[in-house]
Deep mutational scan, measured.
Amino acid sequence: MEVRTIKVFTTVDNINLHTQVVDMSMTYGQQFGPTYLDGADVTKIKPHNSHEGKTFYVLPNDDTLRVEAFEYYHTTDPSFLGRYMSALNHTKKWKYPQVNGLTSIKWADNNCYLATALLTLQQIELKFNPPALQDAYYRARAGEAANFCALILAYCNKTVGELGDVRETMSYLFQHANLDSCKRVLNVVCKTCGQQQTTLKGVEAVMYMGTLSYEQFKKGVQIPCTCGKQATKYLVQQESPFVMMSAPPAQYELKHGTFTCASEYTGNYQCGHYKHITSKETLYCIDGALLTKSSEYKGPITDVFYKENSYTTTIK
């Protein structure tokens, strides 16, 4: 009895394709271990004539594949690729409408935090270190965002349907971005203890939790000093293409032309909904596939993004 075979390709990165001759009487799992086709788990399936010449994702289970996976995804987590594939199996079914010149995501599976993050990423200057993220990001900007969303979920250790947080998501993504040249110098002034300067680099240099107003941050924000008295913390120097200011959701007025974009969060910790506000020729609110415009805006804002380049204080 002759062994019926077909020729397929296996890959971990969709760049390096490895030619395989597979036995049609055995499952993919018996031949390769966990195997995925377009995100779908085909591990328990036997090869079919229609699979001839198709590319299958496999887990990096030998040295060659491990090197290829690390170079593309910059992670050695053995569960990463499987999590990416199972997320992709959902995100490829989502709709990605162009809204006001940006790629958004039609609401499904509690994905409003991903839509808000995706919209924000198209408006701030950011370059990702893992080629996987950078490639998928370019495709997302062009309207094909399924891979990018699935990668975000995998890097953030999230599953489809789980509630997510924009600030946490951005923080994970910033860790995989090139923020080497970003720098922030802060000064804390206390009447009792004097003053202390701190220099922050990388992710810490672009994120701040405690106030939404970048102007206020430049002037000074009140913080408790270690001595128990009130101290003032203010920005001395900022070198970065953008800054992200966050605070627990509270009524906040966004003035046209003073910011790049913002995240609105309605609801409580267990259950809520994100919308995205962007400042173009007027203010726009993007909620999944829905767009509304207004000249002014007041609502429960939790993150505001500002364009920056270089700032030095005039406070002496």
Score class of each variant (00 low, 15 high):
Gly202Ala: 06
Thr199Gln: 12
Ile105Val: 11
Ser79Thr: 14
Pro249Cys: 04
Pro241Cys: 06
Thr199Met: 07
Ala40Pro: 08
Ser240Cys: 05
Leu291Gly: 11
Leu235Lys: 04
Gln123Tyr: 05
Gln270Ser: 07
Gly143Phe: 05
Pro60Gly: 03
Lys183Cys: 08
Glu264Pro: 04
Glu239Ser: 08
Cys227Lys: 01
Leu291Glu: 12
Phe148Asp: 04
Lys54Asp: 13
Asp135Ser: 10
Ser246Ile: 05
Thr116Ile: 00
Lys127Gln: 15
Asp135Cys: 05
Gln237Thr: 09
Ala205Ile: 00
Tyr269Ala: 07
Phe242His: 00
Ile15Thr: 11
Val3Trp: 14
Gln196Glu: 09
Arg141Trp: 03
Phe305Met: 00
Leu235Ile: 09
Phe70Ala: 12
Tyr252Thr: 13
Gln31Ser: 13
Asn16Tyr: 01
Pro249Ser: 03
Pro224Ile: 12
Arg4Thr: 14
Ala205Pro: 04
Tyr214Val: 06
Tyr306Asn: 01
Gly272Ala: 01
Val221Arg: 02
Ser171Gln: 13
Glu281Tyr: 05
Leu235Cys: 06
Gln31Arg: 11
Leu186Asp: 02
Asn111Ala: 01
His18Phe: 07
Lys229Asp: 15
Ile277Val: 03
Ala205Met: 01
Arg141Ala: 09
Leu88Arg: 09
Lys92Met: 10
Pro130Trp: 05
Lys54Trp: 14
Ser79Gln: 14
Gly228Arg: 03
Ser213Tyr: 00
Gln195Ile: 15
Ser295Leu: 12
Pro248Asp: 01
Gln30Pro: 09
Val3Asn: 13
Tyr155Pro: 04
Phe259Gln: 00
Ile45Trp: 15
Asn157Gly: 12
Leu283Phe: 02
Gln197Glu: 13
Lys316His: 15
Gly202Ile: 03
Ile6Gln: 08
Thr91Met: 04
Ser294Thr: 14
Cys193Thr: 06
Cys271His: 13
Ser50Ala: 12
Ala69Ile: 07
Ser294Cys: 15
Thr302His: 02
Thr312Val: 13
Glu215Lys: 08
Thr35Trp: 11
Tyr72Met: 12
Tyr84Ser: 04
Pro241Glu: 06
Glu71Ala: 11
Ser279Thr: 01
Asp109Arg: 09
Arg4His: 15
Gln134Glu: 12
His90Phe: 11
Val243Cys: 01
Tyr73Leu: 06
Phe9Pro: 04
Ala247Phe: 04
Ala87Asp: 02
Val166Cys: 00
Asn61Arg: 12
Lys316Pro: 14
Tyr214Lys: 02
Ser263Pro: 05
Ala117Met: 03
Ala40Arg: 10
Val243Gly: 04
Ala247Tyr: 05
Lys127Val: 12
Pro249Leu: 01
Tyr172Glu: 12
Val8Met: 12
Ser86Lys: 09
Asp63Gly: 05
Lys127Pro: 05
Ala250Met: 13
Glu308Phe: 01
Lys106His: 10
Val21Pro: 10
Gly143Lys: 05
Asn268Lys: 09
Ile277Glu: 02
Ile286Asn: 00
Glu71Lys: 13
Lys218Trp: 05
Gln122Asp: 10
Pro224Lys: 14
Tyr269Ser: 10
Lys219Gly: 07
Thr302Asp: 01
Ile105Phe: 01
Glu2Asn: 14
Phe259Lys: 04
Leu283Thr: 02
Thr55Asn: 09
Lys298Glu: 05
Ser213Trp: 06
Leu283His: 02
Gly202Leu: 05
Lys191Met: 11
Leu153His: 02
Ser310Val: 15
His51Tyr: 05
Ile45Phe: 15
Ile223Ala: 14
Val221Trp: 03
Asp13Pro: 03
Asn110Met: 06
Arg184Ile: 08
Ala145Asn: 03
Arg184Tyr: 04
Thr198Glu: 12
Gly53Asn: 02
Lys92Ala: 10
Ala146Asn: 00
Phe217Glu: 06
Tyr138Ile: 15
Pro241Ser: 10
His176Ile: 03
Ala136Lys: 04
Asp135Thr: 08
Phe242Asn: 05
Ser181Arg: 13
Arg83Ile: 06
Lys46Asn: 13
Val236Phe: 01
Phe305Pro: 03
Thr266Ala: 01
Ser240Thr: 05
Phe305Asp: 09
Tyr274Met: 00
Pro131Leu: 04
Glu162Gln: 12
Leu88Pro: 07
Gln222His: 08
Glu144His: 11
Gln230Cys: 03
Leu212Ile: 06
Val189Gly: 07
Leu121Val: 11
Pro130Phe: 03
Glu68Met: 06
Thr64His: 10
His51Ser: 05
Cys227Ala: 03
Val236Thr: 06
Cys182Gly: 14
His176Gly: 03
Lys158Asn: 02
Met26Ile: 13
